[in-house]
Design a protein around this nucleic acid. Structure first.
Lengths: 234, 234
DNA sequence: TGTACATCAGTGAACGCGCGTTCACTGATGTAC
DNA sequence: TGTACATCAGTGAACGCGCGTTCACTGATGTAC
């Protein structure tokens, strides 16, 4: 009750003058409305977590990069978790598309399909490290955000279907323990490989085979030879 | 030059009085020196990252929990990376001990040894999530800290030796591509399983088999059946 | 065995910083009549 | 086709907070002689 805020002294006139100077001879003065702030904030968020990691993200920095005041993002995303969840959802979408494309990119042999999906999984992680890390940081996401959960589950179902075929199970049959094990083993292997590669754990070894590209081009195929095979389920 | 700091007005007398009141009838007044601040700070750091994650760690909070002023930790660790590196080194030490113990805890069959190490790897991660996450957060560690690198490498060499035996390679022989692949596949599988389990990705499935303990007791053995085997190297 | 003194391990106040959020506001847009 | 007005999408200053670090200092300990 006792605290009052004073209105700024004639801000809008000064603001207009600044804009006219700042944009003279380039293009139209900066409009009051951004136009597509939502997309600009998502792009800014991706750039920030690419540069600084998921934990280096701040809402103020995103607003700054989008050229907008610190309070503006709240109109579109509420808070930081909302913005990050929107970005994660895009990530799951693209991730699912990549797995699906790999699934269909060759023959029907389940072993080959699984290997193609594994390559797609790791390739997505290495090409989109910021999104990949974010997608598994549930502490930073809003679980209730739109259909974030559903989009994520759709992606992992593609992997599950390849395992079902590998284990000769139809879509209606319940998963057997052997199939569960194969699914977890596959998921763990590709997820762990992606994590270790992004963490730089393979860099020393890769430097002897031509550096970074060797990880996907040489190490990954060497590793995926040890993916589960039908006969291992007994 | 122009800024001066004023000395506090008679601080020590007041401080002594506070202490006498605070500890009356319990034990001796709090001594000026902590006694074992180094160990207390490491314990505090582990508690903090257990509760809040690696990124929730602050030096001030560690000092607070150790009952010491914010500037005190600098005398022992310099900065936050120094303290976290000390904790990570303890983690690698215990981790290596756990792998070594598992390696010797049964027969010589390489397949069995590898499986025991895999169980030890994941069990360590699940029982020490804070340390485990920290050990792979090189961005938060000081790479030059004492022999941090060496202690880490020692731990992973235990895994490498089991793979060498699996692939019938002596310690002097160079690793073959097949052995490299088996090593990366094994490391990826156990590391990925640990990460996914800690991230809660198996929780939904585990709840149908008795909750959390099911992950190590049932899911992990199901998964480790798909560890690399000698015959897969052709 | 004493004692002077250097060194070590703490204190606690203060610094400047960037953060999320709130606030009263303003300019632009869309819609009902 | 106009026009009043509600709603939406922004501004920018201010708030309180916790952080790492610095500073001059103080109390305890260890060591040389």
């Amino acid at each position: 009750m006792s605290k009052k805020r004073k209105p700024p002294a004639s801000p809008s006139a000064q603001r207009s003058a600044d804009r006219a100077i700042g944009t003279r001879g380039k293009k139209a003065a900066k409009p009051y409305h951004h136009g597509d702030l939502r997309a600009a904030l998502i792009a800014a968020a991706e750039a920030i977590i690419t540069e600084r990691g998921v934990d280096g993200f701040t809402l103020r920095e995103a607003a700054r990069r989008a050229g907008v005041s610190p309070a503006a993002p709240a109109h579109h995303f509420g808070d930081a978790a909302g913005l990050l969840s929107a970005l994660a959802k895009l990530g799951f979408k693209d991730f699912g598309d990549a797995l699906r494309a790999a699934d269909h990119a060759g023959g029907d042999d389940p072993v080959e399909r699984l290997k193609r999906q594994g390559i797609a999984y790791v390739t997505f992680a290495i090409e989109n490290p910021a999104r990949f890390h974010l997608m598994f940081r549930s502490d930073k996401l809003d679980a209730a955000y739109q259909d974030l959960q559903a989009v994520g589950q759709q992606a992992f179902r593609i992997l599950e279907n390849a395992i079902r075929d590998l284990c000769a199970l139809s879509e209606n049959q319940p998963m057997t323990p052997g199939a569960y094990g194969a699914l977890m083993a596959t998921w763990s292997m590709v997820h762990g490989f992606a994590h270790l590669a992004l963490g730089g754990e393979f860099d020393d070894a890769a430097s002897r085979f031509g550096g970074g590209p060797a990880i996907v081009e040489r190490f990954l195929p060497m590793t995926l030879r040890y993916l589960p095979r039908p006969e291992m389920g007994r």
